[in-house]
Simulated assay, not measured.
Amino acid sequence: MLLWGLFKTFCMIGLVSFGGGYAMIPVIETEVSRNGWMTTQQFTDAVAIAGMSPGAIATNSAMVVGYQTAGVLGAIVAALGMILPSVVIILLAAVFFNKVHKNKTVQSAFYGLRPVVVGMIIYAAIKLAFSNGMMNSISYYSISAFLLFALSLFALMHLRMHPVYVIILAGLVGVTLYS
């Protein structure tokens, strides 16, 4: 029953969530919380692990949730649930996209979806920051977390550092600041 719940939940998330993995995080977090599979802190840690792992963050998050909930089989079932809708939709879309990709209505729909996706990604970041206590009060932790965020953003955008290096450096800074 638990495995079916994992599969069904992640299949639904994979079916109705648009905008990539980061835009799916709030939906995953809502379902994980609703089902009581993880605490907010555990989910935040799962997203951190998923983000540092190779592959899509939504699928990686699903696998971590599945593993935490039902072991290796749970990870497999959650991952299959997450990717199955995408595979089916992509195969169907590939058949029809060449016929409609120049259609004005289709192009307009994609232009309309872009700002919503950006908004969902920003929402996910803010929600994770609040649920981690990073923005609840002014403290050493919140100030240092904000500075780490700002420096990471600067390194990515202005110094054009590779994200892997930013992640490694942030981890080292975290060990130094919070140990």
Score class of each variant (00 low, 15 high):
3 L>C: 03
3 L>M: 03
4 W>R: 14
6 L>Y: 04
8 K>G: 08
14 G>Y: 07
15 L>I: 05
19 G>W: 03
19 G>F: 03
20 G>V: 09
21 G>L: 07
24 M>T: 01
28 I>M: 08
30 T>R: 15
31 E>S: 04
32 V>D: 05
35 N>I: 00
37 W>F: 11
41 Q>N: 12
45 D>S: 14
45 D>G: 10
47 V>A: 02
47 V>N: 04
49 I>G: 05
49 I>K: 07
51 G>N: 04
55 G>P: 06
58 A>P: 01
58 A>C: 07
58 A>S: 13
62 A>I: 04
65 V>E: 04
66 G>K: 01
68 Q>D: 08
72 V>H: 02
72 V>T: 13
77 V>F: 03
77 V>W: 03
79 A>W: 10
82 M>H: 04
83 I>W: 01
84 L>Q: 07
85 P>M: 05
86 S>M: 11
87 V>C: 14
87 V>N: 10
87 V>Q: 11
88 V>R: 07
89 I>S: 12
92 L>G: 06
92 L>N: 05
93 A>V: 15
95 V>T: 09
98 N>H: 14
100 V>A: 08
109 A>D: 06
109 A>F: 02
110 F>V: 12
110 F>N: 09
113 L>C: 15
115 P>H: 06
118 V>D: 11
118 V>M: 10
120 M>N: 00
122 I>N: 03
123 Y>E: 08
125 A>V: 12
125 A>W: 00
128 L>C: 07
129 A>L: 10
130 F>Y: 13
130 F>V: 13
131 S>V: 09
132 N>D: 09
135 M>P: 00
136 N>H: 13
137 S>T: 09
137 S>Y: 00
138 I>V: 12
139 S>M: 04
139 S>H: 03
141 Y>P: 00
141 Y>R: 12
143 I>E: 04
147 L>D: 13
149 F>T: 15
149 F>Q: 11
150 A>I: 06
150 A>V: 09
153 L>Q: 11
154 F>T: 01
162 H>V: 06
163 P>Q: 01
164 V>I: 15
165 Y>W: 15
167 I>G: 00
173 V>C: 15
174 G>S: 06
176 T>K: 12
177 L>M: 15
178 Y>N: 09
178 Y>C: 10
